[in-house]
């Protein structure tokens, strides 16, 4: 396994980077928008959930587009942490902090997604509890769960939008300092937008 990873280092890194944007980033945006139906009340929200649950090939899509990419991205993300020796306090440049936060938010996101998938996909499937507005609202009655969702939302949105910035560098799209600066602004705007959508939807369930 170790030898295989070493031999396919370039390919693994590139796949890891690509998966973060497509499909994971695209799915994240879709998910945040779907959550926002909660703003229109339980009936509208439940109707949309039922529509999604009625999609053909749902399980195959969940496994192929969501589960496996997340597993790959998370697994190698953790492996890559091995090469991380932080020095943001000593060399506190903004890009260095963003590098640090990318890793910290990635780890938070891993725990958050693990909990979230267990609670609202696996556990409900095993017990037969229906996934609907009340289930989410009920979980948020516990302030700890709500704050964990708040933290998870901030972490994931940061990890994705800063990841888009890195993706553009990593694939040689933004090469010079000016292009990278402009992409910083664009990614920050995307991040703030998604954060608003994500948090606004969280509050719809309180």
């Amino acid at each position: 396994m170790k030898k295989w990873v070493q031999e396919h280092h370039f390919l693994i890194r590139k796949i890891h980077s690509l998966l973060g944007v497509v499909p994971m980033g695209v799915f994240l945006m879709e998910h945040l928008i779907t959550n926002s139906f909660g703003k229109f009340g339980p009936e509208v929200y439940n109707e949309k959930i039922e529509w999604i649950q009625g999609l053909p090939y749902l399980l195959a899509m969940e496994i192929g587009i969501i589960f496996l990419p997340i597993l790959f991205h998370a697994l190698f993300g953790v492996v890559f942490l091995w090469a991380w020796k932080d020095n943001s306090l000593q060399y506190s440049y903004s890009r260095n902090w963003r590098y640090t936060f990318q890793r910290v938010t990635g780890v938070i996101a891993l725990f958050f997604i693990g909990y979230h998938v267990w609670k609202f996909r696996i556990e409900t499937a095993l017990t037969g509890i229906p996934v609907n507005f009340d289930l989410v609202a009920g979980a948020f009655q516990n302030p700890l769960v709500f704050y964990f969702y708040f933290l998870g939302m901030v972490s994931i949105v940061y990890h994705f939008t800063n990841g888009v910035w890195s993706f553009l560098v990593h694939w040689g799209i933004t090469v010079g300092p000016r292009a990278q600066q402009i992409s910083t602004y664009v990614c920050a705007a995307l991040g703030l937008g998604l954060l608003y959508i994500g948090l606004d939807a969280l509050w719809a369930f309180v």
Binding site: Y91, Y93, G172, I173, V175, P177
Partner: peptide, 26 residues
């Protein structure tokens, strides 16, 4: 890891991060 500290401290002002991004493209 794109922390980009290298380009901040290079005493010869070498555009190191531009070199790395250029090689990413190549």
């Amino acid at each position: 890891g794109n922390a980009q500290n290298c380009v901040r401290v290079c005493p010869k002002d070498i555009p190191l991060t531009t070199s790395i991004a250029d090689l990413n493209r190549k």
